[in-house]
């Protein structure tokens, strides 16, 4: 094999990596923003805190990251969780209502955080119960909470937009730890925990095997019920955390609007990161790249002075394109058009 061939082969291997296109898109987008708006890539230190566009993007990408990590695991099992947006609203409402009743102390804030997370965990467990024990289709089971959940959040806040003050709680969303924004630290820690949980144990592999071939996994002795249940519980928990991180800076529990359509963001970052909606193989690194990409797109819309109302439209189109691209029929049609490439791949 001669040298140019080697380069070509390596290049092809690189472009075939599942993260190649998302990373390439991210880099291109960042460079474009940098070129259009000089200073985009600058990071400054003020008050020994980091500031700048890249820091903001990191901070905002934490919400989709947290949602995406949970959603990614659920999708890997061949399911879906449509309730994450509503769970965000519920856990924030629970936390803020607790603070509202108990005052702004740091201990109260911590308790509020824990109560909010426990609520989310309970909801996730409930979803898992419906899916595994009762055998209800995942989208129906979680759809019930997708809308009823907002009613529950309204119940918690008694229909008000509960506004309260607790510097400690607020700092979860807007503070800094050693100069780094708190949400970024939270995101990094959660990512590390989830990565260890799924990849240092066999959880990840078993979840993938269930998602790829449920019957073969069953015959190999894998018991899907407990695993799938766990995954929905984790997804609920992370959605609750996302709601608190996302809503803490505002200190206002707006049950109708917190987390509205965030299901879309969660599904988006998962598919952008190269995980297929049919289940099976998943990529946590892909979720990280996907959430950075999504946030950068949102930021780029502002930088390029595009009306921000267009963003959801753009997201929906991306989702449709990704769905169609994953379709076997379309792939067959396309590969049929490119016989030469097929042949090369076969050899």
């Amino acid at each position: 094999m001669n040298a140019p061939n080697n380069v070509v082969a390596n290049l092809r291997r690189l472009t075939r990596h599942h993260l190649f296109w998302p990373v390439a898109a991210l880099v291109a987008l960042v460079l474009a923003c940098g070129a259009y708006s000089p200073g985009f890539l600058d990071v400054t230190v003020a008050d020994s805190h980091l500031f700048g566009q890249p820091v903001d993007i990191l901070r905002q990408s934490v919400t989709p990251l947290l949602l995406g990590l949970g959603m990614c695991l659920v999708i890997a099992t061949g399911g879906i969780d449509l309730s994450v947006g509503a769970v965000m609203a519920i856990s924030l409402a629970v936390s803020l209502t607790f603070i509202d009743a108990n005052g702004p102390g740091t201990a109260t804030a911590l308790t509020a955080l824990v109560i909010g997370l426990i609520t989310a965990l309970v909801i996730g467990t409930f979803n898992g119960f419906l899916v595994t024990v009762l055998g209800i289709q995942p989208f129906i089971a979680t759809m019930i909470l997708m809308v009823a959940g907002r009613g529950v959040a309204m119940l918690v806040t008694k229909g008000q937009i509960t506004t309260t003050a607790s510097p400690a709680f607020k700092s979860i969303g807007s503070g800094f730890v050693l100069g780094v924004p708190t949400p970024v630290v939270i995101g990094a820690v959660v990512l590390a925990i989830v990565a260890v949980l799924v990849r240092r144990t066999a959880l990840g592999m078993l979840v993938e095997s269930i998602g790829i071939n449920r019957e073969a996994s069953r015959l190999a002795g894998v018991r899907a019920t407990g695993l799938i249940w766990t995954v929905y519980a984790i997804c609920g928990l992370l959605a609750g955390l996302a709601g608190i991180v996302y809503g803490a800076p505002t200190m206002a529990a707006d049950a109708n609007n917190i987390g509205l359509m965030k299901e879309l963001d969660a599904i988006m970052v998962v598919v952008l990161g190269g995980t297929k909606l049919d289940g099976g193989k998943f990529s946590l690194a892909g979720v990280v790249v996907g959430s950075l990409l999504l946030t950068t797109i949102e930021r780029a819309v502002i930088i390029f002075h595009i009306p921000s109302q267009v963003t959801p439209l753009f997201k929906a189109l991306v989702l449709i394109v990704v769905c169609l691209a994953a379709s076997e029929r379309l792939r067959r049609a396309v590969t049929g058009l490119l016989p030469v490439r097929r042949l090369q791949e076969a050899s």
Binding site: A202, M205, L206, S209, I212, N213, E215, A216, L219, G280
Partner: peptide
């Protein structure tokens, strides 16, 4: 349908039953 997990590697397929146990 009931044997291999096609999208997993040879290593993972061999490991599956030990791991499930």
């Amino acid at each position: 349908k009931e044997g291999i997990i096609g999208d997993l590697t040879v290593r993972e397929n061999i490991a599956l039953a030990i791991q499930a146990g």
